[in-house]
């Protein structure tokens, strides 16, 4: 369990920024296919994800993680993938699941729940890796 250094905190904040943006883009690309409830849910999740990114910048070096380098690397990879391909995602349910998994990851990081962080990274990854339909 180690404190993040300033560069790592910045990197993590960047990831939440891009994930927040990706959730917003997914919402707009699929606007006509989403129900009102789904739109609201995605909007709330997007706001929470952006908040995590902002909070990480403000608290900077107070955050902790297990195997920081490895965890951050995984979050980086998944963020890049989501960010690059969210536009082509047709499966609405998958989009909603990924957004919810990202939200849980953010909560775990902000709560300094190191075990939860590890599980959530895995959850985001597995949810994202479910084959597109």
């Amino acid at each position: 369990m180690v404190n993040l250094n300033s560069d790592q905190a910045k990197q993590l904040s960047d990831n939440f920024y891009f994930l927040g943006r990706a959730i917003g883009d997914f919402r707009y690309y699929n606007w006509d296919r989403l129900t009102l409830d789904e739109k609201k849910k995605l909007s709330d999740i997007q706001n929470s994800v952006l908040r995590f990114g902002e909070d990480i910048l403000a608290y900077s070096t107070t955050l902790i993680m297990d195997e920081v380098v490895d965890s951050l690397e995984k979050i980086n990879t998944i963020t890049t993938e989501i960010n690059d391909t969210i536009k082509t995602l047709n499966n609405i349910q998958k989009g909603l699941n990924v957004a919810a998994a990202v939200l849980i990851l953010g909560v775990a990081i902000m709560n300094r729940d190191t075990k939860g962080i590890g599980n959530s990274i895995k959850e985001v990854y597995e949810t994202w890796k479910v084959p597109h339909s």
């Binding site: 300033s6 910045k10 917003g24 902002e54 910048l57």
Partner: peptide, 19 residues
């Protein structure tokens, strides 16, 4: 980095509001 970085989030929130 940190304070200036916060503004990027503000911009994204603004974008979502008008979109």
């Amino acid at each position: 980095t940190n304070l200036k970085g916060e503004l990027r989030f503000k911009r994204e929130r603004l974008y979502a509001y008008y979109m």
